[in-house]
């Protein structure tokens, strides 16, 4: 190849470089797409096997472990199977036991975000999404979820359903929790947060923003603190809407009384 010199050479190499960068991005995207296809394929196949051969898998110990190893790597639910299958081969009880495992797993996986409490509707959507999509029969129903929660009653009040409306149509707006009030760290987190702000009064939105919590989670924690007498509420009606502040008498001595507004 003829060696280029001067300005032309610089321009040429710069163009070439740009082209290479562009091409390498395309190749990267391509190989990622391919990898995802392989991964998806493997996922589907594993789920399909779990759903068709649950009984065979359960009886052969060596093969069962190999199969579980595959599921482990990919993160596929080895218990993915339809209600019909469970009922037919392993008893309907087993179906609810597996669903219970899936419910608790789904809720606990998001504890950092929601503190261990979810709308029934959200929970249901997530459970359905993790079901293998080739299983046309037996979608999960709310009743199934309730049944699983009921079976876990013997494990103490560690999980349950909280009705938020008496209307039947609003049943999906109820809440399912897996972390009992007694073991929640939310109140501690909230108090620490307010304590660090240097003030002894706060608004719900302030706390929710700085902790990155949803409104529901913040409200639940504050309500508990009010019940325990740790937080006081101040409410005033006003022309610019209602004024609500929460006070922490425990911080009166240390922190400032100032309110921003």
């Amino acid at each position: 190849m003829r060696r280029r010199v001067g300005v032309a050479s610089v321009v040429h190499s710069r163009n070439a470089e740009q082209l290479f960068t562009k091409k390498s991005t395309i190749i990267d995207q391509n190989s990622i797409a391919k990898l995802e296809t392989n991964l998806e394929e493997l996922k589907q196949k594993l789920k399909w096997f779990a759903s068709k051969h649950q009984v065979d898998l359960q009886t052969d110990a060596a093969f069962r472990n190999e199969f579980l190893n595959m599921c482990k790597s990919i993160g596929v639910d080895p218990l993915a199977s339809s209600k019909g299958y469970w009922t037919q081969y392993l008893g309907v009880g087993t179906y609810y036991y597996t669903l219970a495992v899936q419910i608790v797993e789904t809720i606990l996986s998001g504890v950092d975000r929601h503190g261990g409490i979810m709308l029934l509707k959200d929970l249901w959507i997530r459970l359905e999404r993790h079901r293998p999509n080739f299983l046309q029969d037996s979608h999960i129903s709310f009743e199934d979820i309730f049944q699983s929660l009921k079976l876990m009653k013997s494990l103490g009040k560690g999980c349950g359903y909280i009705r938020t409306s008496s209307q039947k149509s609003q049943i999906d707006q109820g809440l399912v929790y897996c972390v009992p009030e007694e073991l929640k760290q939310d109140q501690t987190l909230l108090l620490t947060n307010v304590g660090q702000s240097g003030k002894c009064c706060f608004k719900l939105t302030d706390v929710a923003d700085s902790l990155g919590w949803g409104g529901l989670r913040t409200k639940t924690a504050v309500d508990q603190l009010i019940r325990d007498g740790i937080v006081w509420v101040e409410k005033r009606g006003g022309s610019e809407g209602e004024y609500v502040r929460y006070w922490l008498p425990g911080l009166f001595l240390n922190n400032s009384y100032e309110d921003d507004e």
Binding site: Y97, L108, G156
Partner: peptide, 27 residues
Amino acid sequence: GMMTLVEAYCRINRARGLLVISPDDLM
């Protein structure tokens, strides 16, 4: 140092893989 039986139920069953136990058995 502490874990609810509900969480333990989920964890033990996942660890057992395909051989699920019932809440009553765990209890």
